[in-house]
């Protein structure tokens, strides 16, 4: 498999320090769950903002950091159509994400990016899109959803199947309510059995089964699946039964990364660098990767 020629070209100032981040200011901070937070980040100036949005396509990722703690890679959770800021959503899991959580509105963090490839949404114009997400994997899909919603006329029917372990684990609850109210989006929420609350009105069951039941049509449609690897694997069967071709189903991989630019050598799956050849892959590509490296 060769690298995607559509992939964003390297963007680097000649003679510049490849690893030097810019300093972003936290404009807003929201707790999504007990351990998941969203930060809205403001660029230091118009030059940096313009340079970022010239490159940024939905699906790309960045490295967010706090000097003294380090950097961590995760997706850019806001779409290029909202071009005055970026957002990121992350779970407090280690040293860097704890330091990021400790930063308050008005304080700074470091940022490098955008890096990696992107969802080819320009090829999806006029198509129906089925979004399937589990748990903390909604952020990359959320960026696509808003990108599409901000250009609503260009796309067909939108179906979102989103599930989490428990109601408390659902992220972007405020936006889920907005999407629920919209007539031009079909949102199906689910929680794992036992994860429901007394007033839960959504589905109860695992994402692949809820998808099977919802049975969105594969005709003129693409699917976008993000979640833990195990969820992706179990979603492949209903997608196949619904006749989604592997080449029209997309996912993102979130391997451990350090450099983000194809040097440090740890994110590879087989001969592909997730940071350069991904993080977006079709299911067709995913199936051709050495499965034991995923």
């Amino acid at each position: 498999m060769s690298p995607d020629p559509d992939q964003a070209q390297a963007v680097q100032q000649p003679g510049g320090n490849l690893y030097a981040p810019i300093t972003m200011t936290i404009a807003e901070s929201r707790d999504e769950t007990y351990d998941v937070r969203t930060l809205r980040l403001q660029f230091p100036g118009e030059t940096e903002r313009a340079a970022f949005f010239e490159k940024y396509r939905v699906g790309m990722f960045g490295l967010y950091g706090v000097p003294g703690a380090g950097e961590s890679a995760f997706c850019i959770a806001s779409p290029p159509t909202q071009d005055q800021y970026i957002e990121c959503t992350f779970r407090k899991a280690g040293r860097v994400t704890t330091a990021l959580c400790d930063r308050e509105v008005g304080q700074a963090i470091t940022f490098r990016g955008p890096y990696g490839n992107f969802f080819p949404i320009e090829q999806w114009k006029g198509k129906n899109i089925v979004f399937i997400a589990g748990g903390i994997a909604l952020p990359p899909i959320r960026a696509v959803i808003w990108n599409v919603l901000d250009r609503r006329d260009e796309f067909g029917r939108l179906t979102i199947v989103y599930g989490a372990r428990t109601v408390a684990d659902l992220v972007y609850k405020h936006e889920l309510q907005q999407w629920q109210k919209r007539k031009d989006v079909k949102l199906i929420l689910t929680v794992d059995p036992g994860g429901e609350t007394d007033d839960w009105k959504g589905e109860i069951g695992f994402v692949p089964m809820v998808l099977e039941k919802a049975a969105p049509s594969a005709e003129n449609a693409v699917a976008v699946v993000c979640g833990p690897l195990i969820m992706i694997k179990f979603t492949l069967l209903p997608l196949k039964q619904l006749n989604f071709p592997d080449a029209h189903a997309y996912t993102t991989l979130e391997n451990r990364m350090k450099c983000g630019v194809g040097k440090c050598g740890r994110c590879n799956v087989g001969s592909l660098y997730v940071c350069k050849d991904g993080p977006v892959f079709t299911i067709e590509q995913l199936k051709n990767l050495p499965q034991g490296d995923l």
Partner: peptide
């Protein structure tokens, strides 16, 4: 071999 880590020390 060229693999590397990026770590902060403060």
């Amino acid at each position: 071999c060229h693999c590397f880590d990026i770590q902060d020390e403060a």
